[in-house]
Amino acid sequence: MSRKVETVLFFAATQQFVAQTCWRPLADVYRSRDGWVVKFELPGVGREDVQVTIQGCRLVVSGIRRDWILEQGCAYHAMEIPYGRFERTIELPCGMEPQRFQLEFRDGLLLVRVATEGEQR
């Protein structure tokens, strides 16, 4: 029993425990002059596979990272990049303008720029 509990504790500690069926990309959040910039770590994800939605204070980035066969006759020896569906929700302190955001892919990172209502005024 205790071995199992330890395993569980380990996962709890590394925050991987409350596993969603999707994986969560890491994100940085910046405060900019006219709003927010949120940077997501999404290498290997095609632009067409990413959806961004804003509902009130929530910025939701979801999508899928597809794996592809590098070349014929090669098989995994180790794997730790999460593939498949991902989803990340960032809660920001105040309301945003749903229409006004920009996406930018740079070197495997997705940048989302959001203008806030307050800054707009």
């Binding site: 996962f11 991987q16 596993a19 069926t21 597809r66 794996d67 066969i69 098989a75």
Partner: peptide, 26 residues
Amino acid sequence: YLLMPLSVGRKASLAAVAAALAAEEK
């Protein structure tokens, strides 16, 4: 909903995992 570490040693199981990993969805 739970993560579980597994150790696979059987031949058939190794092949099954390899096949799963080869697919896009894994």
